[in-house]
Write a protein that binds this DNA or RNA. Structure first.
Lengths: 242, 242
DNA sequence: CGCCAAATTGAGTCCGATCAACGACAGTGG
DNA sequence: CCACTGTCGTTGATCGGACTCAATTTGGCG
């Protein structure tokens, strides 16, 4: 593994404070590979063999049932995913596929469990990581249960506007629709219907023309939309997902 | 705190393996109180001061937004809740209220954080607990996004049937409806509509008259319905097609 | 018995899904 | 350079599921 990659991973909150030797051991048994787009890295139901870390590209976490499929999250560099399954040595609950050419590091789950049993600082980092992941999924569930689809969309746009009034959608609209729990057709209509509420769209480009009006629709709150920047669809993170 | 209570708490996976002195210290600073029904124990948004443990009764975890409200989980003895917020020293994402006369132990969050930094076995237990909670919320989210309301209800009934064909609903129907993401009216209609699919209802009493038919509706899978029983009211999942 | 909350039932409406058609665009190969 | 092709996004029309509102009925409890 390249030194730059190692340092990047070492800088993650998850690994920052752990013992150097332990980190070295973990990484010695790790893989780091390039993948083309649209490659399935993980299939839900399979035993959790490896903790994954995205160092380049983007990975979609999704789940299926009975022929249906839904996007649960998008993970961008540098962040980990499916930590919980590895820790519990349980089957993955989500599948993962690359969305673009990506570089993925993989750490054996057994090494992970052995190390976190020996390294207190690492165990603490894992606790914090998991607690963050847990809270982000709770937010997602609240978003789904408490808001209507138009409101979810408005809140999503505000989360990604971050001060500046214009930005590019970080993912395809069909993926965004799935993440927000609606159909692509409905997302299209919902975007248009937000015109009077201060949203203008041109392709992937979104411009917030009236933030106050949009806020009135979305009623954003840190208890759903978060402040710690973890867990939303596509954030660039030194944190993780899983 | 009574000795019987202490032992019960000590027997929880979360505390079982930790150092005896550390456990003693934690409990010395803890409260244990009785509450009448319908008492609000926690309000979302407040700073997370205490880890809570239900030793008797039942507690509803719920969340609100913009005048709406939804049930996220029901916690029954003996189990903890809002661990994640305490660990992260972050605001609660959910509110909690007693559903019946209940007995609740409370451990100061600061003690908790101090102890898990010193006690490796405790840290490991917390990791497993959190990983389990995380996975249960992921399942809840998958349930909401992938299944229609009728299917969610069918799956819920199967989860709680546990072999025997008859059981009592563990919560009020309005609460169940909220947990499943529907209105009480719709739950009523959905229950009736499951008659031809092998469900008969009399008050709180549910009888599965044709498990195969109900399975055909719910398509249960451990990846949504099964497993490590935190959050929902657990179920040891098995059979699945689809 | 009487009170209140929960549950059911019915009727009407709306949101969101489905189905189908079309335009925009990128990549491919002739 | 340009048809060919597949995917994505949009739009329209229609359908169905779920919500709302309102009226009873049921059941629990003082």
């Amino acid at each position: 593994m390249r030194n730059a990659d190692l340092e990047e991973i070492r800088d993650l909150p998850l690994f920052r404070d752990m013992d150097g030797d332990h980190f070295g051991n973990l990484m010695r048994g790790a893989y780091h590979q390039n993948f083309p787009p649209q490659v399935t890295l993980i299939e839900e139901g399979r035993p959790a063999d490896f903790l994954h870390i995205v160092t380049e590209g983007a990975v979609e976490l999704y789940a299926g049932w009975n022929g249906r499929e839904t996007t649960m999250a998008v993970v961008r560099p540098v962040a980990t995913f499916i930590l919980a399954a590895c820790i519990n040595d349980a089957p993955y609950l989500m599948s993962a596929r690359t969305m673009m050419p990506s570089r993925i590091a993989m750490i054996a789950g057994s090494d992970l469990r052995a190390t976190f049993a020996r390294d207190a600082a690492f165990a603490q980092a894992i606790v914090r990581e998991l607690a963050g992941c847990y809270r982000s999924v709770v937010r997602h569930a609240k978003d789904l249960k408490l808001r209507a689809s138009r409101e979810r969309l408005a809140a999503y746009l505000l989360r990604h506007a971050r001060g500046s009034g214009a930005f590019d959608l970080p993912v395809e609209k069909r993926t965004l629709a799935s993440y927000l729990g609606m159909t692509p057709e409905n997302l299209s209509r919902a975007l248009k219907s937000l015109g009077p509420d201060g949203v203008s769209v041109d392709g992937m480009r979104v411009t917030i023309t009236d933030a106050a009006a949009l806020v009135a629709v979305a009623c954003p709150t840190p208890l759903i939309d978060g402040g710690d920047g973890c867990g939303d669809l596509s954030y660039t993170g030194s944190s993780s997902n899983c």
